[in-house]
Design a protein around this nucleic acid. Sequence first.
DNA 1: CCGTATTCTCTACAACTATAGAAAATAAAG
DNA 2: CTTTATTTTCTATAGTTGTAGAGAATACGG
Lengths: 211, 211
Amino acid sequence: MCHKSPTQNILGSCPVPKIVDHDQRRLELVDATWRTIARLGIESATMREIALEAGFANGALKPYFPTKDDLLTFAFGHVFNRTNERIAEVTAGQSGLVALRSFCVEVLPLDEERINEARIVIPFWQKAINDPGKARIHRDSMQQWIAAMSQHLAEARQSGAVTTAVADPALAGQLLNFLLGAQITAALAPEGQVELGLNEQLEGFLTLLGT
Amino acid sequence: MCHKSPTQNILGSCPVPKIVDHDQRRLELVDATWRTIARLGIESATMREIALEAGFANGALKPYFPTKDDLLTFAFGHVFNRTNERIAEVTAGQSGLVALRSFCVEVLPLDEERINEARIVIPFWQKAINDPGKARIHRDSMQQWIAAMSQHLAEARQSGAVTTAVADPALAGQLLNFLLGAQITAALAPEGQVELGLNEQLEGFLTLLGT
DNA sequence: CCGTATTCTCTACAACTATAGAAAATAAAG
DNA sequence: CTTTATTTTCTATAGTTGTAGAGAATACGG
């Protein structure tokens, strides 16, 4: 048996190098999973259908994800990570209300792509209800979000942009639940409807903070 | 064949009366469905399991609900109706901020029973993503909620309890999404944790309206 | 071209599910 | 008790799904 990395193979220590980068293949499969769920819903996202979407036959996913649960857990985790990376990019160098706005705008389902993400995160939540591991993934991410939003609130308060007597933890919690609820609203809106007033709602909330 | 109502049977026009009140039986089955989903999750809520929970054998649901989808649709609709009735009871005779608070307190998952309801509505949302009929049920109910909340906001504005420059539709939308998001937060909280700061968040929001 | 390690396809299978429907059990009227 | 309409159980069936694994196909070094 030969289990060397591609790099080691190039160095010539293994007679037959691996062709496929397993890590990248896993990402491709996660992408196919994502597309399948968005297109058909999680209940129709069978291993066969996902493999087909990825351009393979039935059993081809096996070497990369031993079980379906492995695939789904990895896929959900990846979406979470990507969202958090996007948030980090967008809010980099910002602070206070500006950062808070950027944060929320990035999370809110304001375009088709993020509405699709809402259609994926809801099945995840449903699975998490009876899967403590998945629920944990959710809570950890939300804890991060709360921390980030609290920091931006504190900055905004220091600069005088936030003056309300309502305490920061309550504000951060409100905002978080608003962001989560917006996913529901968007995912269940009529097909193709992207304007749901979410931006006005966000601006309204930020306005309330300064009063 | 004899298809008379129990009332007619009592009047004696039918030799053999129906024993079971079909409408009531349907409600019992809906209750069993509710309990099964709350206990095992929707993915394990099979017809067999639901029948067992109701105290029957496998095929006993057939005469009352021809298909599983009929059962689930009816069950979900019933939860919606019951919630709306509860809201109507609680807010009866109230107006303005008081009514708005009662409304939200009734919807928020503040105790075990309503946390269980959150664990049922999330699977409903997931199904609604790929079932326009169910999505419609959701949107219609939310439209009602928006109307009720808007009315209470208008009353509160008239009495001077709401003074913010932010427009009512934005406020009602914020509040609705907050209520929806709270269902997610509660359903995925660690087992047995009922204190999530939701009450403080609600009070905080209502405070913001008056500034 | 050959040999070998890897990758993928395809068939098979066991478990599970919704549903159908025959047959048994039940309950009340006569 | 008998009869009849109703209700419930139980068995059967067709379809789907995740998973396993043999074998074909592939790609590369020599």
